[in-house]
């Protein structure tokens, strides 16, 4: 029997490469969810991985870092927060 495919729809799923139950320390929402100001997860609401080993939703961390009282420090360990580049 020959089958002719007329149409097909591809579906894909994705998730951040993070342990299942880990939450952002600032908003306490899972990394797979968005930060509280965003509606859709993905590149528009990405994660920031710190060199100190602590990660946050990008928007959560930026709100903190832009605040003077943060002194540019990681809210977890109080080391200077520097983020890893993608290829590191």
């Amino acid at each position: 029997m020959k089958v002719k495919i007329k149409e097909w729809n591809a579906i894909a799923t994705w998730r951040w490469n993070m342990p299942d139950d880990e939450v952002c320390g600032i908003c306490r929402v899972q990394f797979d969810g968005t930060c509280p100001t965003c509606k859709f997860p993905g590149d528009d609401c990405s994660l920031l991985l710190g060199k100190c080993g602590h990660s946050f939703h990008m928007h959560c961390l930026l709100t903190w870092i832009q605040q003077e009282s943060s002194k540019g420090l990681c809210p977890m360990c109080r080391q200077k927060f520097e983020w890893k580049q993608n290829d590191e």
Binding site: I26, R28, C60, W64, S69, S70, L73, P75, M76, R78
Partner: peptide, 9 residues
Amino acid sequence: REDWKPVLN
């Protein structure tokens, strides 16, 4: 005050 950080609850 000075030692507040958002990961504290």
